[in-house]
Nucleic acid binder design. Structure first.
Lengths: 207, 207, 207, 207
DNA sequence: CATGAATGAGGCTTCATTCAT
DNA sequence: GATGAATGAAGCCTCATTCAT
């Protein structure tokens, strides 16, 4: 008469793991700490995850999913010109991330994990997919602006999206390094300039 | 002094450490491996570095210095319009980084190290300083463009520089994740749009 | 609790540690040796003791407790004149110690530990307390002899007790150095002379 | 044309070693520290001593010799009754030792060394010899008192000497453990009682 | 299913000793 | 003879993982 596996137990562990990994980093975090944070026994974790690395990957997946969910909500709810929607997207994403700046250390850990064997490819692929998703969303916004004749620049929307998302990523890094860094202001300036560029023709000879 | 002791022994160790850390990550790298890569005994490393972490920080410092050196060379050698010089800067930096893409994993490790105790502040401060340096160089290029009436946008040069540098950083990350990612093309598009924006007035009502 | 875990595991480890430390000395003893002697895994020791030094201190405490227990038994069971009881105490203590002469090396190690950082004060305080205990027991025996007019010498019982106990200690040392040393005979002579002195007035002019 | 070995260099090293060993204990002392204290290079020590243990033994020998030298001076210079000479001996020895109480930690180390292989027998034999020497000196003082009819007790002088010396040893230990311990007072009481006992017949039936 | 006691591989670090200069 | 850079053996300790209850 085994008690049915509590479906929330796994989630509970991941929550505890996110907090602990974010605070201390992957290597420095011990399974015992995660177990204690989750209020369960050490061995129980191994009932739900094959290994420490497995648990790590699970926390990664959850964060990725949460972010994508956030992006979907934004792109569905905001209306108006492409410029407006892009700005809204930027602000929402950055605000959300800023509100969870403490998680950024965890993202850094994930990136770092892509460098270290043996799960390198696993993390790398997941990251790549997540970026591709974000890119697609942003690029489609830009493409809409072009279709509506709001943007005249003849550029590859995907490339602009890449750079834009990249700048968000990097702004977060700088905020992580320096709590006084003006993320939203810098982002505003960047997107202002970028949108101004998109609204005009880019004369080849000018560059 | 007894055996003259290779005056470059310390440098030799750092070189070996860079290669090893980059390949396997900080945690996964053992002192024994670094020693072997350097062709010396395990104990010798401790003649030059107090601890594994100290060695790690030394590799970090060296890479930072090398990059700054590279930037200085570029900003001194390239002439022409601000747009041209910015593009040259972007291309040079990115090309240099691309050529050492394998080191990017190491940078990820460094970032990650800023999250993990106990050297957190040490790395964080060094990173912050390095970014400030880069920002200053790029911002001064933008400022020159404004002085020469090449750029009309009324924006904070430092903020644009932040976003620009951030995008380089993030493009490298994506290249690291995906070897097929078009770093230079994306950068070109991004800087084209950005420069186009800088050359025009940014009408407040337009955003 | 999972495996019930031998409730005496900690004691078992201490026993093994006593034997190993006594035989090889503190520095020369490795945790691996103690673990093997205890028939357990290396890591298990760290479930019960924070460090090698902690284990060492635990062995020390146990030996101290055992000796005090021995003294209590003697002082409670022997009856008769103070002289008789003091002699009985001396003989019992020395016999007990002689029977465990192999432990004396361990006591030397403890003494030595009081000299070496960083646990110096810990051991020193414990030793001091143990000596104070023994002193109190012996001094009270002498004091009883004075109350009963068996001893006429006007001396500080505590000082005599100190010297007496000290002589036992030192006799053990000499036995440890020289297996042929006549501990009990020497002690007998010493206590005979000492008791004879206690039974007479000590004329100041005579000294 | 090798410079002749500085005959004082060896002595200089031993002096430095005594200070260092006494302060930090044998294990905790590194050859590098001794070398630095002696103001010479690490390697130089190995020109004069085969190993760290050899150096340790040399410091031991020197301390033993110094103490014996001290005893000889006392036994030659003091005149008067046997009681007086014994008291003088006790006071001189204890005062000398007290003045160098910091060296006592080193003696403890030596004792401890007799417990730990592999030089066990070497130290043990030297200690045994040193005690035999001291015993002989003290016993001869007692024997003189018997010959002069100052002492009437029919006891073995060597046994009394053993106990007496042992008590000195142990008093030092207690002083080492407790800086407030009254060494000289306790010794005075002890020797008073002991001498009183020696001056009287010890009636067998009395014990 | 849950637990946590037990385990042992493996890492960092120390330091006595060597030996080229 | 003097030196100290180089070495590597060896030890303490951590912690992911297992498994008996």
């Amino acid at each position: 008469m085994a008690r049915p596996s509590d479906p929330n137990k796994k989630k509970k562990i991941v929550i505890a793991a996110i907090a602990t990994f974010a605070q201390k980093g992957y290597s420095a975090t011990t399974i015992a700490e995660v177990a204690e944070a989750a209020g369960i026994g050490k061995g129980t974790i191994y009932e739900y995850f094959r290994s420490k690395e497995d648990l790590f990957f699970a926390t990664f997946e959850r964060l990725i999913l949460d972010t994508e969910h956030e992006m979907d909500k934004v792109s569905e709810s905001v209306v108006g010109s492409a410029s407006l929607r892009l700005e809204a997207m930027a602000n929402t994403i950055l605000s959300t991330w800023l509100a969870n700046l403490n998680l950024y250390g965890l993202v850094l850990e994930f990136w770092s994990a892509t460098a270290a064997a043996p799960s390198r490819d696993r993390f790398r692929a997941a990251f790549k997919a997540a970026y591709a998703d974000m890119r697609a969303v942003v690029a489609s916004l830009i493409r809409e602006g072009m279709k509506d004749d709001e943007f005249h620049a003849d550029v590859d929307p995907v490339k602009v999206a890449s750079a834009l998302i990249g700048s968000w990523d990097a702004l977060m890094l700088q905020a992580w390094l320096d709590p006084d860094f003006d993320v939203l202001g810098t982002s505003q300036t960047h997107i202002d300039v970028l949108l101004a560029g998109l609204r005009h023709n880019i004369v080849a000879g000018e560059t």
